[in-house]
């Protein structure tokens, strides 16, 4: 990896100056899964970039995934994919539709989608979703440990509500993001010690929308894909980065941003 030991150690003291060559990366070859409402694969920003779309379906007590031709029931997944593609246009996108899939409880489809993404070993997993149901705490924790061990980097959006949402409050095994009013995605923030560590643009973000257009959107959901896109750039630069390395690198970059 490009971050050497001296640089890495200095990261901890906040004095690290990361090399900026990752800025010129495009996410080439990095697989990015979007677990969401589907993706409009014909959108000009995404046309030809979504390699596979699957949709959750209930099969008895199991959640199974069938390949589909794409499509987005709510617009949200397309917006998230569009934000990532703006930062990492050459990333390889995979759509895992868990919202708007009929007959499935929200939490079960969501967990099934995450498990599917880990099994497929997608390198970056964008989760602009969450659940507050305590019964999903343990299985999500287990899945995120599996993601960590598999080298999958899960990026999750916090919610805006008084209750904690899972998995965004799990600090060790994933990267959690909350919106800020900043506009430059490269100037994200890292707040070590807070439950939600990263801040990224999430207010009036112009994003792709089903049908070929764009919408200005606000929410933590739209901060999360900015960080997923930046991680795709870092991974193109060094595909062997582990979740631990990525978090350290984000911390280092954010530290240099704040100087």
């Amino acid at each position: 990896m490009n971050i050497d030991e001296a640089q890495f150690l200095s990261t901890m003291s906040g004095g690290f100056k990361p090399t900026r060559d990752w800025h010129s990366c495009t996410g080439k070859g990095v697989s990015v899964a979007i677990i969401d409402s589907g993706i409009d694969t014909s959108h000009p920003d995404l046309d030809g970039r979504v390699l596979k779309s699957v949709e959750a379906r209930s099969d008895g007590k199991l959640v199974v995934f069938d390949e589909t031709d794409g499509g987005d029931s709510a617009g949200h997944g397309t917006a998230c994919a569009g934000i990532i593609s703006r930062i990492a246009p050459d990333a390889r996108f995979f759509s895992i539709k868990v919202l708007g899939a009929g007959g499935l409880g929200d939490g079960h489809a969501f967990l099934g989608g995450l498990e599917y993404a880990i099994k497929e070993r997608y390198k970056v997993i964008n989760l602009s979703l969450g659940t507050t149901k305590p019964q999903f705490f343990a299985p999500l924790h287990d899945l995120l440990d599996r993601a960590y061990q598999a080298g999958c980097i899960v990026v999750a959006a916090a919610n805006n509500l008084p209750q904690p949402s899972f998995p965004s409050v799990f600090s060790s095994s994933l990267i959690s993001v909350i919106k800020s009013e900043m506009t430059d995605p490269m100037k994200f923030g890292f707040h070590f010690g807070e439950v939600i560590e990263l801040t990224a643009p999430g207010v009036n973000v112009r994003a792709a929308w089903p049908g070929g257009g764009y919408r200005n959107l606000t929410g933590n959901s739209f901060a999360c894909p900015h960080i997923a896109g930046i991680i795709a750039l870092l991974l193109e630069k060094d595909p062997n980065l582990t979740p631990f390395h990525v978090k350290s690198a984000l911390y280092a970059i954010a530290s240099s941003n704040s100087q």
């Binding site: 029931s73 919202l99 929200d106 602009s128 979703l129 969450g130 507050t132 919610n159």
Partner: peptide, 14 residues
């Protein structure tokens, strides 16, 4: 529908 199933608030300006 998205907000119900995702539990995430959102705003759309246009």
């Amino acid at each position: 529908g998205f907000v119900l199933s995702s539990g995430q608030p959102m705003a759309i300006a246009d």
